[in-house]
Each structure stands twice: as structure tokens, then as C-alpha cells.
């Protein structure tokens, strides 16, 4: 076994451990947190980390650790549902334009190029300006903003699948286009899409925390990782723990997702074996 394979395996194992720990933390945080993550306690403002408050308290005296635990659920579910929207919409559009081709495809590519010219975060910001702030708005905005990426990817996959003999065979057998797409094209998109989902999830998580940081995320008092970072910014030089720890958790989550994404790519996409 070469060293790179060992390192890769270490990476995958480390990724899995971090991911599992964060997942467990989020699940526990749904049912139990050491302190109430929302209740204000003015006797205990900005106290530094101690045995009583492991990661200190914020400007309203709320326990930072408890807030991180309960924020995880919101941050993760926003990213999850945003990715799901992007996946469903993107696959639908990508399959249609890729399979039918012709002028549909040409028109679509121009549209896609135009959407790609508006950076994801800015597009999401603009969409939120139209539909308002809030958790569901955030999910929709991020989902729509990432749809072009998925559509582009699926279109590429479908274009290559279209050349395969089994699609030809399905046509010769007299199957309808819809049948061919559902039973022959879609199943073959799943593997490459799995790899894309991991990078999409990390992008969505990053965008969610960036938008919350800009004050465009889930409104208070519900904690999110990005929102906690933004709250801490004001007290940064005197109480750095308020923003250090949420940032550590976001970075660790992203690291885990990226490590697992690399491992998935190694496994499913042998062409990328040298990445």
C-alpha cells in the first residue's frame, strides 16, 4: 500500500470521525443543551470560558456551547434543504436539456452562462431581497442560486450517457423517451451526483454562514453558526470566544465534508484518482 493511499485512508477516517461527532452534537442539541440557548441571562454577560460555561457566554449571557449545539440543526438543515432544491430542480432541467438537445439546449446554455455571471452569494442576496428574509427564504434563495451548477453538471453527464449503446438499445426496443430517461439515464447520473452533492453541501453551508454573517440569514433569536460569528464581531477584542468557537465548528464541519467529498471522488470517479 502506497503512502498516498494510506494518507487518503487517514483523510477519510478523520473526515468520518469529525462528521460523526458534529452530527451527534447536532442530534443531542436538538433534545438537550446544557443551558437554554435563547434565554437571556444578564447577570452573566460575556464571561470567559470556565468549567461552568465551557466556551464562555455571549453578550446576552447565553452559553456559547449550548448555542453552537442548537445552531447546528438550523445551519445543517438550511444547507440540506437548499441542496435538495438545487438537486431536484437542477437534475430536472439538466436531464431535459441534455437529453432533448437542439435549440432547447442552446437557449439553456446562454441562460446558464448568464446565471453563472452572477456569483452564488450575490444572487442569493438579490433573491432574498425580493422574497424577504427568514429561514425558508434562505433555503429557497440558496437552492435557486445553486441550481445552475447542478443543471450544468447533469447536462454534461446526460450528454455522455446519450452516446452509450444501452440508450440506443432502449430506443430500438421502442421505449418512450420518458421511460428511457427515468429508467436508464437517471440511475446512471446518481454516482457522479453523489460526489457533487458533497461539494454543493459545503458550498451551501459556507454561503449560509456568510449570509447569516451579513445579517441576511435566519432572524434572531434562533442561533446559527454564521449569526453567532456576526454577533461576536462587536465584542471581538474583549471577548473573542464568542466568535472563535462557532468559527471552529463551521471550519471543522466544512473540513469533514471536504475530506469525505475527496474520498467519494476517489472511489467513484477513477479519472480523478490523481486529485
Amino acid at each position: 500500500m502506497t503512502r498516498i493511499m494510506k494518507t487518503r485512508r487517514y483523510n477519510e477516517v478523520i473526515g468520518k470521525y469529525i462528521f460523526a461527532s458534529i452530527l451527534i452534537m447536532i442530534i443531542i442539541g436538538t433534545f438537550y443543551t446544557p443551558y437554554d440557548p435563547i434565554a437571556i441571562n444578564l447577570d452573566n454577560i460575556l464571561s470567559s470560558p470556565s468549567w461552568k460555561h465551557l466556551l464562555g457566554t455571549d453578550q446576552f449571557g447565553r452559553d456559547v456551547f449550548s448555542r453552537i449545539m442548537s445552531a447546528g440543526r438550523i445551519s445543517a438543515s438550511v444547507s440540506f434543504f437548499a441542496v435538495m432544491i438545487a438537486l431536484v430542480l437542477g437534475t430536472f432541467i439538466g436531464v431535459i436539456v441534455g437529453f432533448w438537445g437542439g435549440w432547447v439546449d442552446r437557449v439553456f446554455m446562454v441562460f446558464l452562462d448568464a446565471l453563472m455571471a452572477l456569483p452564488g452569494i450575490l444572487l442569493a442576496l438579490a433573491i432574498m431581497m425580493v422574497i424577504g428574509a427568514g429561514m425558508s427564504a434562505l433555503i429557497i434563495a440558496l437552492g435557486v442560486a445553486y441550481t445552475p451548477n447542478v443543471a450544468r453538471l447533469v447536462r454534461g453527464i446526460v450528454l455522455s450517457i446519450k452516446q452509450k449503446e444501452y440508450i440506443e438499445a432502449s430506443k430500438v426496443l421502442g421505449n418512450s423517451k420518458v421511460y428511457t430517461v427515468v429508467f436508464h439515464v437517471l440511475p446512471n447520473c446518481i454516482t457522479p451526483l453523489t460526489v457533487a452533492v458533497s461539494s454543493l453541501f459545503s458550498a451551501a453551508l459556507l454561503a449560509e454562514s456568510a449570509l447569516s454573517f451579513l445579517g441576511m440569514g435566519v432572524p434572531p433569536p434562533s442561533p446559527t453558526w454564521g449569526g453567532m460569528l456576526a454577533d461576536g464581531k462587536q465584542y471581538f477584542s474583549t471577548a473573542p470566544w464568542v466568535s472563535i468557537f462557532p468559527g471552529v465548528v463551521v471550519s471543522l464541519t466544512l473540513l469533514a465534508v471536504n475530506l469525505l467529498g475527496d474520498a467519494l471522488r476517489d472511489r467513484f470517479d477513477p479519472r480523478m484518482n490523481n486529485m
Binding site: 483523510n11 459545503s202 459556507l206 454562514s209 456568510a210 454573517f213 460569528l229 461576536g232 464581531k233 471581538f236 466568535s243 472563535i244 468559527g247 463551521v250 471550519s251 471543522l252 466544512l254 473540513l255 471536504n258 475530506l259 475527496d262
Partner: peptide, 15 residues
């Protein structure tokens, strides 16, 4: 590199 990719730029800035 993979660590660098995983750190959000705004948190990096604050640190």
C-alpha cells in the same frame, strides 16, 4: 490546502 479550503474567509479575517 484542504484545511485552507475549509476555513470561511470572514472567520479567517476575524482570526
Amino acid at each position: 490546502l484542504i484545511v485552507a479550503i475549509s476555513i470561511p474567509s470572514f472567520w479567517m479575517g476575524m482570526m
